[in-house]
Amino acid sequence: MYSDSDTVLESTNYKFNNKVELNATPKKESPMKATKVVLALALTASLLFAFTSCTCKPELEEEKIGQPAAMTTPSAITPAPAIIKPAVVASGVVTIGDRVVDIGDRVFPVYFDYDKAELRSDTRETLGKLAQWLKVNPAIGLRIDGHCDERGSNEYNLALGETRAASAQKYLVYLGISPDRFEILSYGEEKPSCSDSNESCWSQNRRVDFTITAK
């Protein structure tokens, strides 16, 4: 990697746009609001925030100084296509069976035991009500997101989240809902609904939640 014969060292110290602001205080927002903020920002994220351009000079010269080799850092990123926010079919309060649920643009989550993707009896009961609701609302599609708590391997948790989402989907299909109304996605432990380190918080994070995607 390192050669003594180099008279000019190449790109040894790539440099990104800004120093990190370590004292930035996290914004306090409700999880729901935060989700919307993410969505809104995602539209412009890659254009505005991905990388700012930086034409860096060579960082270091060794012995006799020649013409420095040009060096660049990421200046242009393929912009992400604009994201079309999923159509929100219904908002506010809906009735599912005997439950009244504020769905907003999402439906209630279902929960899992630690390190498990098997459906608990309460999870099956909730999914049963969801299936009934989907039957009377045939135009609605759902994205099923699988999540884990923070314990254990992040990458294994991504696999586990996918399995949890697939378990929920499989049960809904078993209850008679067409599989093409669902998409599954895993966030592993990367999108917690609660960010403390205790069992009450972990149990809320081991979940599958649903987002309405189409009508």
Binding site: F16, N17, V20, K27, A45, F49, A50, F51, Y187
Partner: peptide, 27 residues
């Protein structure tokens, strides 16, 4: 803590020269 976005960062082997690599406000 508590932020929805998770970005990439880089630093030297000794933790110095911390830099933010991505700024897409996503995960």
């Amino acid at each position: 803590h508590g932020e929805p976005a998770q970005e990439l960062y880089s630093c030297d082997y000794d933790g110095h020269e911390l830099r933010q690599v991505t700024r897409n406000r996503s995960i």
